[in-house]
Design a protein around this nucleic acid. Structure first.
Lengths: 246, 246
DNA sequence: TTCTGTATTATGGTATACCAATATAATTTA
DNA sequence: TAAATTATATTGGTATACCATAATACAGAA
């Protein structure tokens, strides 16, 4: 009688999160859901009181958020939720353009049938959430939608970076008045991306994504530029085969 | 007589770095220069002794390095210098391909004459360092070379991300035996990039960069795959106009 | 009422204590 | 001698103390 080989399934997992990990999640969530807004001071003792932990856990979580760009500290001013500059916003959109179009292209090329089915499903849920107008539902649906995309693109590091970039412009996207006016166009652009993905056309998906982010960045950066009384260069999208054939 | 408008030039700067910032720099430098190798445990009390600071500063620096991906902690195992997995290595090369080619393209399109002069100078210094064979000089020259590129590309966030990605594969690049055998090819490829940049040809610079990173990744990933007894997918480079004209 | 000086409070930086869990070393047993 | 058991040391998690500096509040003078 052959013994079944030992594998990892017997291994005891021990995944009790530390207090600082829980604090990190809570703070990130509070920033993403606008309980904490850009510019808000993050006074350590206040956070200790609210979260019921010591300054050690709070400080270590703040260090992590600083590395992610969601929190900033200036010398002698204490930490605060990062306020995005116009320059950084345009840099982030430029980067997203290149990264997101790559992820969309990779997903189109590589997604398994199951991942494509999950993608279709996430898209349906997102459409329903957009129809409902429920902000919490939309935020969750968008997050799931991108999560499926990142998973199927087969590049975990790109997914991580894109999540960080999106987190940093989360407030800007939510508050650009013209973003709301773009709602119909935005929906059309996303539909174009989804159609190209479903048609397994990486070039078309890539281009649709580039167009979408170009349009989104134009609006968001214009709003921010106006608010800050500055001009801003448009982003440079990635080189694209369709471009050169024109 | 018109008063000269007040600006920031009168403002007193106060940039004394904190202990944790100094610790962060020291640890990052130790990792980059192979005083600390992937897999090395980072025992807090040991680091306190060596650096002459308390555990608070060490722990906060470690949190930052964790967020950057240079350090990893598993539950109940304590922190250690991150060991890169084959999957993450390929994801990082795939990402670098897209980001570095974008940065090279942007630099080619946007660099001022002064930035181009600085780039030329950095390239001369790098060539001299490569001829000398002095590892420290090479590491510094490479860092300066990329620094100039990132500066001239006009996307600060891309520069930051690329620095992080390069840091994470620093050891892999330095230790792939076949990397050393690639020396001549690598030099030719970089020369091609530089020539295209100097000729102000963004498409050619983009393509040369893509080819360079494809070749570098093939070698580094093959070495790591062999070491880990695994296979790995090649990276998918960005879509490229020259590709589609072929 | 405004400005200046002083007092008080707030807060981030840094150090250290304590504990529980884990790893390692030492001892005992078969 | 090897295995099992027990003892000890190590180490990360977390809390709290203390201090110096900066910010804010308050009082007095002009």
């Amino acid at each position: 009688m052959q013994r079944t080989p030992l594998d990892d399934s017997l291994k005891v997992t021990r995944n009790q999160p530390t207090l600082r990990e829980m604090v990190l999640d809570k703070l990130r969530q509070a920033i993403m859901s606008f309980q904490l807004l850009p510019g808000d001071r993050l006074v350590e003792r206040d956070l200790c009181d609210k979260l019921g932990v010591s300054r050690t856990s709070v400080r270590e979580a703040l260090r992590h958020l600083e590395a992610e760009g969601l929190v900033e500290s200036e010398s002698s001013r204490g930490p605060r939720v990062a306020v995005i500059t116009l320059e950084d916003a345009r840099d982030i959109y430029e980067l997203r353009c290149v990264l997101e179009s790559m992820v969309v292209q990779l997903f189109t090329q590589k997604a398994t049938r199951q991942q494509m089915a999950e993608f279709d499903h996430a898209w349906e849920i997102l459409k329903a959430a957009l129809r409902s107008g429920d902000t919490v539902a939309i935020v969750n649906a968008v997050s799931d939608f991108y999560g499926v995309l990142y998973e199927g693109a087969g590049n975990r590091i790109a997914g991580q970076f894109l999540s960080q970039l999106q987190a940093r412009v989360n407030y800007l996207r939510a508050t650009s008045v013209s973003q709301k006016e773009r709602y119909v166009d935005s929906f059309k652009e996303m539909t174009k991306i989804v159609d190209a993905i479903q048609a397994r056309n990486p070039e078309a998906a890539h281009e649709a994504c580039v167009e979408h982010i170009k349009a989104a960045s134009k609006v968001a950066l214009a709003a921010l530029a106006e608010k800050q009384g500055k001009a801003v260069d448009p982003i440079t999208p990635p080189l694209n085969p369709a471009q050169s054939l024109r």
